[in-house]
Design a protein around this nucleic acid. Sequence first.
DNA 1: AATAGCACTCTAAGTGTTAGAGTGCTAATT
DNA 2: AATTAGCACTCTAACACTTAGAGTGCTATT
Lengths: 346, 346
Amino acid sequence: MKHVDIEQRQKKILGAIVESYIETAIPVGSRAVSQRFRMSVSPATIRNVMADLEEKGLITHPHTSAGRVPTDKGYRMYVDLFLEPKHLTKEEESLIAKLIDKGCEDFETLMQTVSKSICMMTNVVGIVLTPRLKRSVFKHVEFIPIDSSRILAVLITGSGVVKSTMLDMEEEFVKSELFRISEFLNQELSGMFLGDIKGYLTRRLLEQSDSFYTFLKKAMYMLSIPGLLKMEDRIYFEGATSIIACPEFKDITKARLFLKLFEEKRDLMELFGEDMDVEGIKVHIGKENNRKSVQEYTIVTSNYKVNDRVIGALGAIGPTRMEYGRVISAVSYLSDILGKALEDLG
Amino acid sequence: MKHVDIEQRQKKILGAIVESYIETAIPVGSRAVSQRFRMSVSPATIRNVMADLEEKGLITHPHTSAGRVPTDKGYRMYVDLFLEPKHLTKEEESLIAKLIDKGCEDFETLMQTVSKSICMMTNVVGIVLTPRLKRSVFKHVEFIPIDSSRILAVLITGSGVVKSTMLDMEEEFVKSELFRISEFLNQELSGMFLGDIKGYLTRRLLEQSDSFYTFLKKAMYMLSIPGLLKMEDRIYFEGATSIIACPEFKDITKARLFLKLFEEKRDLMELFGEDMDVEGIKVHIGKENNRKSVQEYTIVTSNYKVNDRVIGALGAIGPTRMEYGRVISAVSYLSDILGKALEDLG
DNA sequence: AATAGCACTCTAAGTGTTAGAGTGCTAATT
DNA sequence: AATTAGCACTCTAACACTTAGAGTGCTATT
């Protein structure tokens, strides 16, 4: 029984504490750990180890006579060192596939279905950001004359998003010219990323002869003014209401603050947008987050891709006490699925 | 001091109880009533009157030694008999006008702004249903070929709503025919209510000669299959999160149930849709509502009109203990404003 | 008819008490 | 030297008990 790897045991006990706490939300005592794992060590020994872990800042005490609770740092170590992904079962995957299949006809329901799926699999709030307009490819633009002074501009992107804006024209427009403009744009810009269009057209403008200049200028106006290209991302989420049943929200003001995140979506949008270009699943635990409003929660994000190009982000948010394995697996799986669904849709 | 109108006094005291309770959420005692109105009657007398009111089912006791609380029936009488509308102030109206003005460019933000305005003025949840598609007028339809087998159908209605659907065509389509179809539909259906279109086309179909028949049939297919005309109303709301700070939601499961209303929007949509065709402001207090899920709340609804035709509904929902005067005024005012804003937009 | 007085009821808040869970330390054990 | 048992100590959560105060309902009085 000598020379047991101390480090190893610390890890094991930290793991036990984290997992037990995630499961029950009750601070974990030395006895509980000893029993839970039928360990060959007594509670007393575990207490000593716990004291060490506490010194390292991995766990804490709510008060003297309470069990231990993981700190953010403790969760971090757990996630980094001995978390094994807990893949969705075949049944779960096929359930999701079925849902997505039903909901993927139109863009809106697809977004809703994905966020709902994340929520269902994990019991935390599932979040999906719409594809960044800038990163979508141009597919088609159409100008529909409504009355003498107004035109409806309709833009279709590669990921199936349709965006439309009403244009109030100051001067009278000629139908044939409108047609020429849309034909020109459709030919010229096909397949281009929306984010690159403005620059491209400006460059073209500089190198053109006078005769073509006015035409081009008009074309640019038609595209840029209406805010067609203006990014205006939206966020879809599901499960915010049911999660406030968790014990961490028994204080009603906590619950309100949490729900407020979803009412004022800005913070969340930024948060998810920020590490959209980082590959893989990102996990931000508690105070690791910069924004105060989310420092009691863990955020798991991933990006999703259409034709191998990153165009959006999705993920989950919930109490730091979440089932990391499942959440990570679910987010990972659904980012794949969403990407594929968008390719079909586009 | 003889021959005082008893009825009158009962009313006055009921009003006092209702108003005091709405303000403070604390059960109202006889002493409080007597003082609040510097009445020339003593608490003892008021107690007698209260007993009468209780017998009539207008107020109750939470427990023996508590003050009185209005029942649904009590609120009802209050609303019917001596509620005077509490009009918004000039400042408030101009504030709203400013907000609407800023948000009325596009349809989405207009809806959001209106629900937000209701919330701001009343401290209850503001709700706006999108215009019923069926009741909107047809303005324009456009078919945009995307690739060899797909067409994007775009429908524009009189209230500025743009709806689009992707059409998967089984057989190859000819561009010129597409054009003929849209031209035909635009000419034929202009100004018609969307709800009437299907019937109209069917009738036309019956009386047509063979040559035109296939054309017409195709045209109908283009319109009906894509679900362009399918009603798919949406609901906008604001303030759900902040209202759960009210004492009536101190029990967290109550709060969750309330919030659930907004997650599963069906109940609310039906509720608001139901009395859309009844003129004026409708007030449903507590158990007056049929649906169990809202029997602890009061719902205030109104319709809104574009060109004198009812096309949608809006309103508010909150605890029965709400400021009826203000809520009614706000809902009334904003239904006007919304109607006008939509006329400008359409 | 209205009121004053009074006994009665019930709650909410505060106080004590206790059981139990859990710790930390020390001394014994392996 | 590492582990463990034992034990005193701490803190919470739950329960019982008390009390002040708000409010009622009834009765006798004005």
